[in-house]
Design a binder for these strands. Structure first.
Length: 366
DNA sequence: AAATGCGCCAACCGCAATGGA
DNA sequence: GTCCATTGCGGTTGGCGCATT
């Protein structure tokens, strides 16, 4: 058992094969066949173990190997065979002439797995990642989180003639606002609360709430309710502190906005301010609307379609299809749970921006 | 321009299976 | 039946090159 005996021998080369070594091995096997692999290196004049020679021959030097990218037919066949055989790469390889088990395995791990996930298919089971029922369960969990003490709904109208105008320029519409819970009793750790989105005039939808959660940055492990009746026209002391904070550091506010929304699209808070009174030309509102629209399209789609496996790929427009849903399980914060509902790549983008924003806010408050 | 991150893939490693003595 | 050398297989690693910061 254990390590092959040849590996104990001294002076055996490892790592990438040189062209000279390839030539020696190729010449030897072409003339004599491989025979007993353990004797090949000695007879071929190579400082390698037999195992290494065998692998090099099978995966690279064999004359019947097919080179180049996998065709669409090959790709489909691999997926089909994997569904039937699992990770039995050598068996799969016997059905693809000219392809090695190693090659197929690498192709699977680096490419096909991701492709399937993007289509909403679990690459291990070859079944949809999340069923419609699981999706609804997940949304219920979020609903519960949002109505718990961790996130407090406040209602009130935004007044343009108070200082909230400058800090909460995301929308000038009146309506409910959503705040993340306080992480501690100190105010400085909740500066970020002042940057919440506002929702629409009506009761927020689940997608509104998700957007709100992701836009907040609290990662509380022992959340404390912040406030219950926020009225921008008459904020309480805590709220006043948040608002004053924004207003006393306007340049920082600019940076924070651009950090959150991305420099490419939302560079200046002043731009937002200037267009704030015109909802048809407000980049932040547009962005918010984008988020809402894809979330609602997914909801609509999953409600209309009981089978989601192939439809996600073919029937829904591509930029929606790339999103898939996973059940929120043991995440420690509502933000994380909300974040798991987004596609990985998008979460990453938002995560980075939120991290930047977080550090800026905390740096400023220290 | 340098540092860092990331994906790809050749090759390695350990274990199981096989077969001969 | 047992031992041991060899072969086969699948998971994992490490290094290279490209992209991003």
């Amino acid at each position: 058992m254990g390590r092959h005996s040849c590996c104990f021998k001294q002076k055996l080369r490892k790592g990438l094969w040189s062209p000279e070594e390839d030539e020696k091995l190729l010449n030897y096997i072409t003339r004599h066949g491989h025979g007993c692999w353990s004797s090949v290196p000695k007879l071929a004049g190579l400082q390698r173990c037999g195992k290494s020679c065998r692998l090099r021959w099978i995966n690279y030097l064999r004359p019947d190997l097919k080179r180049g990218a996998f065709s669409q037919d090959e790709e489909s066949l691999i997926i089909e065979l994997h569904a039937a055989l699992g990770n039995r790469w050598s068996q799969i390889a016997t059905r693809l002439p000219g392809r090695t088990d190693n090659e197929i395995k690498n192709f699977w791990n680096s490419c096909l797995k991701k492709k399937l996930r993007r289509k909403g298919i679990d690459p291990t089971t070859h079944k949809p990642l999340v069923t419609t029922n699981e999706l609804h369960q997940t949304l219920n969990v979020i609903d519960q989180k949002l109505t718990s003490s961790e996130v407090v709904k406040s209602t009130g109208s935004i007044n343009n003639n108070t200082h909230d105008h400058q800090s909460m320029v995301v929308s000038n519409q009146s309506g409910p606002w959503w705040f993340p819970a306080a992480t501690t009793t100190t105010t400085t750790t909740n500066q970020n609360a002042a940057f919440c989105f506002s929702s629409s005039n009506t009761t927020p939808t689940v997608s509104d709430q998700i957007v709100s959660l992701i836009s907040s940055m609290s990662t509380s492990s022992s959340p404390t309710p912040m406030t219950s009746n926020f009225n921008p026209a008459a904020p309480n002391n805590w709220e006043l502190q948040q608002l004053n904070y924004c207003n006393t550091v306007p340049s920082q506010t600019n940076s924070i906005y651009s950090a959150f929304f991305g420099n490419n699209h939302y560079t200046e808070a002043s731009q937002i301010m200037n267009t704030n009174n015109n909802n048809n030309n407000n980049p932040v509102l547009d962005h918010h609307q984008d988020m809402k629209s894809w979330a609602s399209e997914i909801l609509h789609y999953t409600e209309q379609n009981q089978t989601s496996e192939t439809c996600l790929e073919t029937e829904v427009k591509p930029d929606i299809a790339k999103y898939y849903w996973r059940s929120a399980s043991s995440s420690s914060s509502p933000n994380q749970e909300a974040a798991t509902l987004l596609h990985d790549a998008d979460v990453e983008v938002y995560g980075k921006n939120l991290q930047k924003l977080n550090s800026m806010v905390f740096d400023q408050s220290l």
